[in-house]
């Protein structure tokens, strides 16, 4: 069974969990994800493998409470077991062959960016991490990023920590100051990744965006996770989740991510009533 062995609140809406899943821990690579189901009536939701411990056979997930399922997940405690936990899914991040990269993360996307940053750092690639949050109390993993990168830029929308401004401002500044990146990797809200990709396109820097469309099976069977990349349809769960940021149709992806909004709101209200003690 997939027992929760650690649970830690990283900020009021973001939680880290360590889950016993030896088979997945054995295989996991940065950039890959799992799909879980909390209980029999639950939906299948994808979450990135934020970290893994092959010896202990555990996998770390970091999730933001955004709706019904993440709320139900957050109501579970150490010792509880998840109904299903499958992975590792998706293609690992390609980290080879790069001398210097910038990783641009936003919000909970930083949780997804972190294992990538760590991998680059461990293999000796120079990595600049630019991470952005709405405000001070939402910052996650700052120390982890600092100790695994050769430069860390922390940005906040309201200036309550780091510099005030957007991650694109910081990236632009670095590029303008003469930093040469072989690649930019961006992970966060769709709108942020769209603007990062637009910016790097101007400078001709290869950019990879980690996409998070709505998924069900995660095995290439339903096509629900499809995206337009370079005019071609791609299935994020098997062809991705990382794609060339300059080729992704972000507007289509943004529209698709809202497909079930009405239903999700209703389910979230139900879950709220059930788990009133949790934050909103």
């Amino acid at each position: 069974m997939f027992r929760i062995i650690k649970k830690k609140e990283l900020n009021p809406t973001v939680t880290l969990m360590e889950v016993e899943a030896p088979l997945i821990a054995k295989k996991a690579q940065p950039g890959q994800f799992v799909i879980l189901r909390t209980d029999e009536g639950g939906e299948r939701i994808p979450l990135t493998i934020a970290d893994y411990n092959r010896e202990q056979g555990t996998v770390t997930i970091i999730y933001q409470i955004v709706g019904a399922t993440t709320r139900i997940l957050n109501s579970m405690s150490v010792g509880d077991c998840l109904q299903d936990f499958v992975g590792p899914l998706g293609r690992p991040t390609v980290t080879e062959g790069k001398k210097k990269v910038a990783v641009v993360g936003g919000g909970v996307g930083c949780a997804i960016a972190y294992p990538v940053v760590k991998k680059f750092h461990e293999q000796g690639t120079k990595v600049h991490a630019i991470i952005g949050f709405r405000s001070n109390e939402l910052v996650i993993l700052e120390e982890e990023f600092r100790s695994n990168s050769s430069k860390l830029v922390l940005m906040s929308d309201d200036g309550s920590c780091g510099e005030k401004g957007l991650v694109t401002d910081a990236l632009k500044k670095l590029i303008e100051s003469g930093e040469q990146y072989d690649e930019v990797i961006t992970i966060g809200p769709l709108i942020m990744m769209k603007y990062v990709s637009m910016l790097t396109k101007q400078y001709g820097i290869k950019t990879v965006a980690s996409m998070n469309p709505i998924m069900i099976d995660g095995t290439g069977m339903c096509g629900g996770c499809r995206l337009s990349v370079g005019g071609k349809t791609q299935f994020a769960c098997v062809d991705g989740p990382e794609f060339n940021g300059h080729e992704i149709d972000f507007d289509e992806a943004i529209a698709r991510s809202d497909m079930y909004k009405e239903f999700e709101q209703k389910k979230q209200d139900e879950a709220c009533k059930l788990y009133q003690k949790e934050v909103s």
Partner: peptide
């Protein structure tokens, strides 16, 4: 693995594969 037609608009909201 589901096939699509490859016509414009196929990734719009409200278009599904039968499998999905």
């Amino acid at each position: 693995l589901p096939k699509f037609m490859g016509i414009p608009g196929e990734n719009a909201n409200g278009v599904f594969s039968a499998n999905e």
